[in-house]
Amino acid sequence: MSDYILMMISAIFANNILLIKFLGNCPFVGVSTSLESAIGMSGAALFVNVMASCITWMVYNFVLVPFELEYLRTVVFILVIASLVQLVEIVLQKVAPALYRALGIYLPLITTNCMIFGVAVLNVQQKHTFMETLVYSIATAIGWDLALLILAGIRERFALGKIPTLFQGFPIALITAGMMGLCFAGFLGLGQ
């Protein structure tokens, strides 16, 4: 049990998937302009990350390993993730139209989120068991959400601050993201 807790803390803070491992940076800068859309994106990312990690783990261990096709990992994982996102979209549109409209464009965007693929690969690389895969994917997604929400909160405040014209928009967002990365680097040594 303590292993799992340690793994979670490590994945959320010390080895934050976004700020330390630099995965999933495009939506990090793209969707963090308002807190509302950031919340939608983080919910969708958490859901898809857990689903994708579990399914890719099963496909890898039950299909690719027995047939000695480990080298097909990248292609197969992309195939699985893309179909999964498509499936989730179809189901959500019918079952929860309100949620579907709230997530809107962010759901299909997740197909191209490097974090989803990165976590799927990390899971098989580090030879996680199924439980470990589950915990690790939840924890990385929480870490990613945390960083995204913090940046979105900061960027909303930029609207009121006096920022030199040179830095307005993306430059200041990138500088902020860099500083956040430094802050999270302070957690290194914590956890595993």
């Binding site: 496909v59 690719l64 096709l69 097909l72 195939l79 179909s83 499936l87 189901v91 549109q93 139209p97």
Partner: peptide
């Protein structure tokens, strides 16, 4: 033979996934 298995596995995976997507698109048609 490894090429054949790889192609087969990919084809089967693709078929299964598209089968599920097709069913979902029918069942959850809005």
């Amino acid at each position: 033979s490894s090429i054949i298995t790889a192609c087969l596995i990919m084809a089967i995976l693709g078929l299964i996934l598209s089968f599920f997507l097709g069913i979902a698109a029918k069942v959850f048609y809005v």
